[in-house]
Design a binder for these strands. Structure first.
Length: 188
DNA sequence: CAAGTGATTAGC
DNA sequence: CTAATCACTTGC
């Protein structure tokens, strides 16, 4: 599933908007979460609750949840049903629907539109209504991107905001496109 | 750098 | 039921 986190870089995440419009961005930063052993995962140690139930669904579905009382986070569920693996999408390079993104994030520079997991959900209009969405469906989906990301163009480092996870926090399970201007703060 | 925000969860 | 926590963002 670390491979999936890497391979998602360069892929385009698309959400339809009104009037046939699309809002989309190229994935430039991801993080892998691998329950049950990964202490940083919501499904660590087999934890199975109403929220985490989505991660136990089949691969190719969206896991969207709400944190800190104000932000949504979008993940791709990556394994077969009952195996709770997921990849958090942490940053996008804006690709389509820029004007709508700017309207949804007023006063922000283009650089700040989608360079964070909560920010990209706001820009794309992703909410908990997208939780469990089939990524082959028509509510949110993935498309092949315009550029191929070479293996050497991928940098990696520790995941963000998971200090509570002990030794698992040190694992370099965060991947980003080296040098891309839209990676989130903290990506080098 | 700290406040903010409310869903989610563990623990009684 | 209550209280603590949180895969973050923003503005001071």
């Amino acid at each position: 599933m670390l491979a999936v986190a890497r391979d998602l870089l360069g892929t385009v995440l698309v959400v339809p908007a009104r009037g046939g419009a699309r809002v989309a961005g190229i994935i430039v930063e991801t993080e892998a979460y691998r329950a049950p052993e990964d202490r940083a995962s919501h499904a660590w140690n087999g934890r199975r609750t109403p929220r985490t139930e989505t991660m136990y669904g089949p691969g190719g579905t969206a896991y969207v949840y709400f944190v800190y009382g104000m932000h949504f986070q979008f993940n791709v569920v990556t394994n077969v049903a009952e195996v709770a693996h997921a990849v958090l999408i942490r940053a996008l390079e804006p690709w389509e629907g820029l004007s709508l993104m700017r309207r949804r994030r007023p006063g922000r520079a283009d650089r700040e539109l989608t360079n964070g997991p909560g920010r990209l959900c706001q820009a794309l209009g992703i909410t908990r209504a997208h939780d469990r969405a089939d990524l082959r469906g028509d509510r949110v989906w993935l498309e092949e991107g315009p550029r191929r990301i070479a293996r050497r163009g991928v940098a990696r480092g520790p995941r963000v905001g998971v200090d509570y996870a002990g030794a698992w926090a040190a694992r370099r399970w965060r991947f980003w496109v080296r040098g891309n201007p839209w990676v989130s703060r903290g990506a080098r």
